[in-house]
Computed example of a mutant assay.
Amino acid sequence: MPKPLRADARRNRERILDVAEAVFDAKGTRASTEDVASGAGVGIGTVFRHFPTKTDLLKAIIGRGVERMAAQIQVLVDEGDPATAFFEFFTRMVAEASSKKTVVDLLGEAAEDLRADKPIGVWRSAIEALLAKAQDAGAVRADVQPPEVLALLLGTCQAAVSAGWDERLRDRTLAIVFDGLRARGPQP
């Protein structure tokens, strides 16, 4: 069990993560740890004390993102309209991808590693619940499965990032994707 951090070390760690998230969102995974240290107002040694490698820092950022998204999805599962919450979630993810490069990295990890013992397993469970509720409400085709949803999310988010979609193109593209997901007529 790791030794608890002092209050100032906890603050530094959180500030590093906040700045790193902004830096990597703006510059993608090619951003440097020096950029992060400078933005956080700490030395590079402080960054490496908390995150020995750039990969460790990226994993921490992705972990925070997974937890945030899982919480947002859970609110939609618990409180959202079953007929619209699934589409709201999908739209939110693509909108974030348009402005945040790390969302695509996160989705890539989700597609590669869906074990329930990791935070991404919680995220996947929430997506499954959203999908099931939408299908029960007759809003999404009964033959759509979670791996297909993740594939569509990843592909759409990657396209939004690489092509620099504006809001109008994003909305038109999502309308086409959603048309393919929507239930038609009686469900089996």
Results as ranks from 00 to 15, higher is better:
G65L: 02
A37H: 02
R172F: 00
I61F: 05
E148G: 10
R13Q: 15
L17C: 08
P188C: 13
L114D: 13
E109I: 11
V23E: 07
L76H: 03
C157M: 11
P147C: 02
D81G: 09
L130G: 09
D105A: 11
W165Q: 04
A9W: 04
Q187T: 15
T84E: 12
W165N: 05
I120Q: 11
F90L: 13
E128V: 10
K59R: 14
G80D: 04
G180F: 03
S162H: 08
A116D: 15
C157H: 04
A134G: 13
R11D: 15
A151Y: 10
L5F: 10
S38M: 09
D8A: 04
R172I: 09
A60H: 09
I62C: 02
A20Q: 08
A129K: 15
I120H: 06
H50S: 05
Q74S: 08
F24R: 06
L152G: 04
L152Q: 07
G43W: 06
L76F: 05
D18M: 03
A83I: 09
A137P: 14
D105R: 08
A163L: 15
E88M: 00
Q135E: 09
A159Q: 15
S162T: 12
P4G: 00
R182Y: 04
R68S: 08
D179H: 11
E167P: 00
T55I: 04
G65N: 10
A60R: 05
K59T: 09
D25W: 04
R30P: 00
E67M: 10
R92L: 12
Q187K: 14
K59D: 14
G164T: 06
A183L: 08
A83C: 07
G41Q: 12
F90V: 11
A183G: 12
K59E: 13
T46Y: 01
A22K: 08
A26F: 01
G121Q: 11
A160P: 03
L169Q: 13
E67C: 02
L114I: 03
V47L: 12
V103C: 07
R184N: 07
R168H: 10
L17A: 10
A134C: 09
A71D: 14
G45N: 04
D25S: 15
G28T: 13
G121Y: 07
D25G: 13
P2K: 05
T29P: 00
K100R: 15
E148K: 04
G63S: 12
S38E: 15
K54N: 07
M1E: 04
Q72C: 00
T102E: 05
T91D: 14
A116C: 01
A60L: 09
A20H: 01
D117H: 11
T29G: 05
M69W: 09
A37M: 05
L58V: 13
A116L: 12
I176W: 00
E88F: 00
V77C: 08
S125R: 10
A183H: 05
G41W: 07
I61D: 03
I127K: 01
M69P: 01
